Simulated assay, not measured.
Amino acid sequence: MRLDVQPWGETMAELVTAARAAESAGAGVVWAPELHRNAFTTAAALAAATGQDLGVGTGIALAFARSPMLTALAAADLDELSGGRFRLGLGTGVARLNQDWHGAEFARPVSRLRDTVAIIRAVLAGGDPIVHDGVRSIRVRGWRRPYPPVRARIPIYLAGVGPSMVALAGEVADGWIAHELCPPSDLRDRIRPALEAGRARVRPDPGTGGDGIRPVRDSGRGPAGVRPFDVVAAACCSVDPDPAVARRRAANVVGFYASVRSYADTFGAAGFGAVCAAANTALRAGRPADDLGDLIPDEMVDAYTIAGTAQECLARLKEYDGLADAIKLSPPSYGLPAGEVRHAQDRLLDLVGSVQ
Score class of each variant (00 low, 15 high):
Val239Phe: 04
Ala278Asn: 05
Glu10Ala: 14
Ala125Tyr: 06
Pro109Leu: 07
Ser238Gln: 09
Asn98Ile: 05
Gly335Asp: 08
Arg87Asn: 04
Arg201His: 12
Pro223Thr: 09
Ile154Pro: 01
Ala233Met: 02
Gly212Gln: 10
Thr41Gly: 08
Val140Phe: 02
Ala152Lys: 13
Val150Gly: 03
Asp189Tyr: 06
Glu299Phe: 07
Leu348Tyr: 03
His36Thr: 15
Val254Thr: 06
Ser219Cys: 12
Glu80Arg: 13
Leu323Lys: 01
Ile306Arg: 00
Ala107Phe: 05
Leu195Ile: 11
Leu81Gly: 10
Asp4Gln: 01
Gly308Met: 07
Ala107Leu: 10
Leu314Arg: 15
Gly127Asp: 13
Ala45Trp: 04
Ala107Trp: 00
Val166Met: 05
Pro184Cys: 04
Ala303Phe: 11
Glu171Asp: 13
Leu90Ile: 05
Gly26His: 02
Gly273Thr: 10
Ala344His: 05
Arg108Thr: 12
Gly273Tyr: 05
Asp298Val: 13
Pro183His: 00
Leu317Asn: 00
Asp4Ala: 09
Thr11Phe: 03
Ile60Asp: 00
Pro241Cys: 11
Ser67Gly: 14
Asp186Ala: 13
Val166Leu: 08
Asp77His: 11
Phe256Glu: 06
Arg192Asp: 06
Asp133Pro: 01
Ala282Asp: 09
Asp218Ser: 15
Ala315His: 03
Pro148Arg: 15
Val355Ala: 07
Pro204Ala: 11
Leu124Thr: 04
Thr281Met: 08
Leu292Asp: 04
Ala258Gln: 04
Asp174Met: 07
Leu317Ile: 03
Arg199Asn: 09
Arg201Ser: 11
Gly308Gln: 04
Ala75Met: 12
Pro149Ile: 09
Asp325Asn: 14
Gly126Trp: 01
Gly207Ile: 00
Pro223Leu: 13
Met300Lys: 04
Phe229Gln: 01
